[in-house]
């Protein structure tokens, strides 16, 4: 079931068009990602969905509610984590949780939630004494304290160290496991790859691709590289003869094979046939990163024509 339906969304600030005809749907219970470079219009899009900004065109429906017209009802079922938002400096974690819980008719157990996000030890800490990661956790907990059906998380891991980022990802997966539909904004590929069921890549206010993370990668026919050090002499022609291989280079004792398709398999098969042991073998697979660059770059080519 589609719980968020955005069609032909438009938004401009003064004369500048920032969101230019976006359409997508989010299914119940999935993590839907919006990925894109700075200024692509991600925040504008999700804040229109949350009713914080008024679209200039198109329509949005969240569980059948119009974010502008039915704002009061929407706020009961939608929890929002803003990209930029703080709490009063001296407000303590438990106080913030209890306060926000009091805003809803049927809130989650805020003490339990506080424990779930790992802030139990920090219950009596003031907001300005929390680390960046702890502030983000609080922000997520506050977005969930009203037991929403939909949670919007806008760049929840920006500014976190890698460990804190991983912890936060686990938290988001737990949110999904509660049955909450998540609309996630990010510009970290790794985050999108790990968390999202489906993903829209937007650039310049338009969707340039919409698919599962693996689907996006598969459609991008980028070059791959395999690097290794042969333990015994290796004739380059063995490799260049392969249809998958486009070039073979040597950097000292290291061989770098560039090609497409199932390059790793092709190269390792040849090496095994000739009983050459490959040391320090490393394959660089096409990643979402490559997909992203290829997609946003491709769009750039179009506009240049």
């Amino acid at each position: 079931m589609s719980v968020i339906v955005v069609s032909d969304l438009r938004k401009q600030y003064d004369q500048k068009v920032v969101v230019d005809g976006l359409s997508f749907t989010v299914e119940e219970g999935e993590i839907f990602g919006i990925l894109g470079p700075n200024g692509a219009g991600k925040t504008t899009t999700v804040e229109c969905v949350a009713g914080l900004r008024k679209p200039d065109g198109g329509s949005i429906s969240v569980y059948g509610l119009d974010p502008q017209r039915d704002a009061a009802k929407l706020h009961h079922i939608l929890g929002m984590q803003l990209q930029q938002s703080e709490m009063p400096d001296k407000l303590r974690v438990a106080e913030a949780m209890e306060l926000y819980a009091s805003f809803y008719d049927d809130p989650a157990d805020w003490r339990e939630l506080m424990t779930d996000v790992g802030l139990k030890d920090k219950a009596d800490s003031a907001f300005n004494k929390l680390s960046g990661g702890q502030k983000q956790r609080l922000s997520i907990a506050l977005a969930l304290v009203g037991s929403p059906k939909v949670a919007i998380l806008d760049e929840l891991t920006t500014g976190l160290d890698p460990a804190a980022r991983r912890d936060t990802w686990e938290l988001v997966e737990e949110v999904r496991d509660r049955g909450i539909t998540v609309l996630l904004v990010t510009h970290f590929m790794e985050e999108a790859e790990r968390l999202c069921d489906r993903l829209a890549i937007i650039d310049g206010g338009k969707i340039v691709a919409l698919d599962t993370p693996t689907g996006l990668v598969a459609h991008v026919d980028t070059e791959q590289k395999v690097r290794f050090r042969p333990a015994s002499a290796l004739d380059d022609t063995l490799l260049t003869a392969l249809p998958e291989v486009t070039s073979v280079e040597r950097h000292g004792r290291q061989v770098v094979v560039t090609g497409t398709g199932n390059l790793v398999h092709a190269v390792t098969s040849v090496l095994v046939q000739h009983q050459i042991i490959a040391m320090d073998l490393r394959a660089e697979q096409a990643s979402l990163d490559d997909a992203f660059i290829a997609l946003t770059g491709r769009r750039f080519d179009h506009s240049a024509q």
Binding site: L52, H75, M80, L82, Q84, S85, P88
Partner: peptide, 17 residues
């Protein structure tokens, strides 16, 4: 002004209150 600057008022406008 501090509450507005910190986005606290904005954050509150996403709640039923």
């Amino acid at each position: 002004v501090g509450y507005r600057e910190k986005g606290i008022l904005r954050r509150l406008s996403t709640t039923p209150v």
